[in-house]
Design a protein around this nucleic acid. Structure first.
Lengths: 247, 247
DNA sequence: TGGCTGCTTTGACCGAGATCAAGTGGGAAC
DNA sequence: GTTCCCACTTGATCTCGGTCAAAGCAGCCA
């Protein structure tokens, strides 16, 4: 059973991701057109939204919650290749079949557009195509950043990198200041973290325990994290101290 | 000293990458405009084209040769995050500073555009923006494919994956058939392969020797490779047997 | 011709992280 | 409450790939 469709009749003006999503640059007319081909869908945590190879008849934006893109090898080894946050775009215009599994990591609401009308609209609306290019370039940067993590960082650095990314995102969403302690909940299970980081869940658990023991993070329960000193965490992540943290 | 500017007065009609580059969709008028802001530059193997953080006052396409994007940590660990082949695009419109080191892996010729005029042109030329979006989406796919390699494959599978990618590219460039043995030269040193694969150069050397001993590949000198049975190589790479090889 | 340099191979050993295996803890159903 | 379940933790052991070291090999310049 699907989660409650809490955004069912939302209009674009009050949309929480309006200013960051693929429609960010659209004017009133364009929004109206989008409105006519859009619909909301909700997914529960753990649900698979699309299987790799499936026909995709829609594209869309994450409104709330977190989705993941994963690749799986024949023998079951899996690697997460994308973590989709609110305002991120799902689907590839011009491609019929999904290239990756898309899963709801938390409860999730998507703003969907039927694919064909969206593609048609993209061709006549430079605002959308241009914004999508920007977003794709950003994702490419994030993917390349992640290649360094996967290829060259130690398990401890990988965990610290993931925590700092989640902390950064959380701060940018909740508009908290960047000084003082960071407090947030991990939106991923240990296994999902392992799939993201190219580790086993045991190693993830051990390294989180180690960071806790060393005072880099505080843990309350399994998921509630406090980072008393963000610079310390970034140092553990092996990032430059300047860090480009204020992006 | 720079390599010979063999393309100095080339025009777009005879350009070898015309049909695949960022200008692929441009009409005659648009090509003429591009012509007025373009110039060719050559680099020798090993030269650094741009340092991460540098101001970039041009963007451009690889005409011939191979370039690499690399990231380096403070302690010297490096990870290659992109391998740029003929027709690939260098630079990011809308960004001033380079995010990665760009190096010429082989002797290289680039078709450069001054950045500002190119950006202006992009804003009024949907053909260019649209093609760049396509190319960026392709690169994102390639990066995600590579995340699986980095995160989950064994050293032997990593080497086999890289060899199959190079073989594939070589076949698509030289229009050779896909049956029978594949023969090509490695365009990368062992160290560059290691940086690409998240390994050490010793491990790369060992695994290449092992693949040779097991008859998966034949080696003539250090660089000249023959793949007698491509399916066997793909199997060693851990890819699905269907493989999506005919892309 | 000889030696230098850079790329590559090979060997011996070590350690970070994987694997296999128990055990813990907290929330939900009964 | 008790039980079950599931996410997580912790321990013991193994192994793949890293590290350190030496040597091979081809091209190049003197």
């Amino acid at each position: 059973m699907t989660a409650k469709l809490q955004f069912d009749h939302a209009n674009c003006e009050s949309c929480p991701i309006r200013h960051r999503a693929v429609c960010a640059r659209c004017d009133a007319d364009e929004l109206e057109t989008l409105d006519s081909i859009k619909y909301y869908r909700s997914f529960e945590a753990g649900q698979t939204i699309i299987w790799s190879g499936d026909q995709m008849n829609f594209v869309g934006s994450i409104v709330s919650g977190i989705a993941s893109l994963t690749q799986t090898m024949e023998d079951g080894r899996t690697q997460m290749v994308g973590l989709l946050l609110p305002s991120d775009f799902v689907g590839r215009p011009g491609r019929d079949a999904a290239a990756y599994d898309v899963q709801a990591t938390t409860d999730l609401v998507m703003c969907c557009f039927r694919k064909k009308p969206f593609e048609d609209m993209m061709n006549v609306t430079p605002h959308i195509a241009h914004r999508l290019l920007q977003m794709t370039l950003d994702e490419l940067d994030a993917a390349r950043e992640w290649m360094l993590v996967l290829g060259r960082k130690t398990a401890r650095e990988k965990i610290a990198s993931l925590l700092s990314i989640i902390a950064r995102r959380d701060a940018s969403v909740s508009q908290k200041g960047l000084s003082g302690p960071f407090v947030f909940d991990l939106p991923l299970t240990r296994e999902a973290m392992a799939d993201y980081l190219g580790l086993t869940l045991e190693t993830v658990s051990r390294q989180i325990s180690a960071l806790k023991k060393d005072g880099v993070i505080l843990l309350e329960g399994k998921r509630h994290v406090t980072v008393p000193d963000m610079d310390r965490l970034l140092e553990e992540a092996g990032d430059d101290s300047d860090g480009g943290f204020l992006v």
